[in-house]
Amino acid sequence: MSVGFLAVSVGIFLGIGAYTFLYAEGLSYLSDDPEVCVNCHIMQPQYDSWQKSSHHAVAVCVDCHLPHDFVGKYIAKADNGWHHSKGFTLQNFHEPIMIKEPNARILQDNCLACHEDLAHDLVVGVNGPADEVRCVHCHVTVGHGDTTGLGGPE
């Protein structure tokens, strides 16, 4: 058993791994381009409806769905990226897709990031009481129009 053989095996692994990463457009996930979010097609209705929504001109996906500070942003990207790729590969996620609590908190923060001057008398951000009404409770259509969705497989 030679170390040469081992080196070849590891090389093959790294090669296939690198190709898979490129083929799956892994680098694109480092960008802010909304089209990246429809790479895997599940988000197509969300993407389509965002294009018709009132916020289309002023915000892309990451403006509302990721924290604005560098570290927080990449932690959230990694966390969501792991969940999304696991779900899409294993095809075992809840449908219709619904936002989960940590992401809902990020969303609320981002509403305030732009609209704070208008809203500071009404809400105090995610550090407020847990049952505080969130912006999208009423303004549900601003990001994605009326409704979007796509049922899951059998």
């Binding site: 599940i42 095809q91 219709p96 409704t147 979007t148 969705g149 796509l150 049922g151 899951g152 497989p153």
Partner: peptide
């Protein structure tokens, strides 16, 4: 509509929406 991998198709198992609430109702009624 039901998702099949990365594509979507209409569910041709025509039936009561009550048997399919997540696709039939929850796409609009949250």
């Amino acid at each position: 509509y039901q998702r099949e991998g990365a594509s979507k198709a209409s569910d041709h198992w025509v039936r009561s929406p009550l048997l399919n609430v997540n696709r039939a109702c929850q796409t609009c009624h949250r």
